[in-house]
Amino acid sequence: MNDATPPAVPDELAQEFVRFALECGVLRFGEFRTKAGRLSPYFFHAALFCDGARLDRLAQFYARRLLEEGVEFDVLFGSAYKGIPLAAALSVELARRGHNKPFAYHRKEAKDHGEGGLLIGAPLQGRVLIVDDVISAGSSVRECVSLIRQAGAIPSALLIALDRQERATEDGVQESAVRFVERSFGMQVVSIARLDDLLDHLRYSHDEVFAGVYDRVLAYRQRYGA
């Protein structure tokens, strides 16, 4: 009798997204200082989804994962600054798929003229889905949650492109940033892909460009991963 555990079935959507991010140069390898102060061998540079075709396809990935997971929400919220075009593009894509949803976003500095304040767009009410690019330490979510709650709405879920699967940087916390956000704010966290999906791609890639990259990324995962 063979008791060996069968290999995990690859997440096809995640693998498709990893290939797309690599083709666009959004996923890069080298040495990069993260917001959490860690020296990472890879960097997810979401700002390079910077033309109409790339942003359109990115929004399709977000929409596909969101609908696949069945996340229920009333308003999309873009986190300043990268989350702003993401929320807008996702709103367009969802409408194209028959799910028309309002979106809002915030600015870092309050205006004292025009519409004023920090919040722009649709009123924040009901269940709010925050859209952003990555989650590593989890600290950037706190500001969005505070703004949403101050508006009287419920921060119900967070949708990101890449889960770096790192430990949160809060003192004494050993759990992942995703788990920290879920536990601390009572929010569901959904990602298109995870660091493990990138590692799967690198492990089986025959591209010489990635020679040695897998070992460096795996070492980082083992040091800071949860």
Rank of each mutant, 00 (worst) to 15 (best):
L94F: 07
V92M: 13
E166M: 08
G114C: 09
A95V: 06
H206V: 05
A89T: 00
F77Y: 15
L118V: 14
L202D: 05
G172K: 00
F17K: 01
I130R: 11
M1V: 06
P85H: 09
G126A: 07
L86P: 12
A4M: 15
G70F: 08
N2C: 01
R183M: 02
F210T: 06
I154S: 12
Q222P: 01
A137R: 14
D197G: 06
S146F: 14
F20A: 12
A63H: 08
G116P: 00
A89Q: 02
D163M: 01
A8L: 10
G212D: 07
R223E: 15
P123N: 00
A46K: 11
V26K: 01
Q125M: 05
Q15C: 08
A36M: 09
A211I: 05
V9L: 11
S79D: 05
A21Y: 02
V178W: 05
L55E: 01
K82W: 09
A89P: 01
V145G: 13
Y62A: 07
H201K: 01
Y42G: 05
V181L: 02
A219S: 15
H99I: 08
V145N: 05
M1I: 00
V217Q: 12
A161M: 13
V141T: 13
G52N: 07
K111I: 12
A4N: 11
R96P: 00
V190F: 02
Y204W: 06
V173S: 04
F43T: 14
I192N: 05
S156K: 09
V134P: 09
L147K: 12
M187L: 08
R216Y: 10
D51Y: 03
R203K: 14
S176G: 15
L129M: 10
L158E: 05
L27Y: 03
C50Q: 03
R97E: 12
A14K: 08
V145A: 12
L198S: 06
E109R: 03
F29L: 07
P7R: 10
R221I: 05
R38C: 09
K82S: 10
R33S: 10
P123Y: 03
Y214M: 06
L90M: 10
F20R: 04
D215M: 06
V134M: 14
D11G: 11
K111D: 04
R107H: 06
S191N: 13
Y204M: 00
S40H: 09
G25Y: 06
V190S: 08
T34D: 04
R33T: 14
Q150L: 15
G152F: 11
A47W: 00
P102L: 03
G98Y: 11
P85E: 09
G114E: 07
L198M: 13
T34Q: 00
E208I: 04
L159S: 15
G98P: 08
R167G: 08
A80C: 13
Y204R: 10
G212H: 07
V217R: 10
V18P: 02
